[in-house]
Amino acid sequence: MERINRIKEVLVIQGKSQVWLAEKLGKSTTAIAAMCNNRTQPHLKDLKKIAFVLDIDIRELLVSTKE
């Protein structure tokens, strides 16, 4: 499975849990777990909300294509 987002990494760095993020976004923990494990990808609107909640630039949530 291709790694596209870094949501799980950012949560670990900030010391926050997937349950915490699910509560902040009003989403199920199953949906957040799927995003964190790159089984599904969030819509851009959701990615923007995640960036806002985590107080980071939206680009920090994505894996660079220029590594």
Rank of each mutant, 00 (worst) to 15 (best):
L25Y: 05
T40M: 10
D46C: 08
H43P: 03
N38T: 10
W20L: 02
E67P: 09
W20V: 00
C36L: 07
A51P: 07
V19T: 13
S64R: 14
I50W: 07
I4L: 11
L61R: 12
L44G: 04
P42H: 06
R6H: 06
K49F: 04
K16I: 00
K16S: 02
Q41M: 15
K48C: 01
N37E: 12
K24I: 00
F52I: 07
T65H: 11
R3F: 10
L62F: 13
I7E: 01
E23I: 01
L11E: 01
H43S: 08
L62R: 07
L11R: 10
V53I: 15
T29G: 10
D57M: 13
K8N: 09
I32K: 02
L21V: 05
E23T: 04
T30M: 04
E9T: 09
C36K: 08
M35W: 14
E2D: 09
E67H: 08
E23F: 02
K48H: 07
L62C: 06
V12F: 07
T65I: 15
S64K: 14
A31W: 02
A33P: 00
M35D: 04
R6F: 08
I13M: 13
T30W: 00
Q18P: 01
A31Y: 13
I13D: 04
I7K: 07
R39K: 14
I50E: 03
N37G: 11
D55P: 03
S17H: 06
L25N: 06
L54M: 04
L11V: 05
I56S: 05
L21H: 08
L44A: 07
P42F: 09
K66Y: 14
Q14C: 04
K16P: 00
V19H: 10
C36N: 11
L62Q: 12
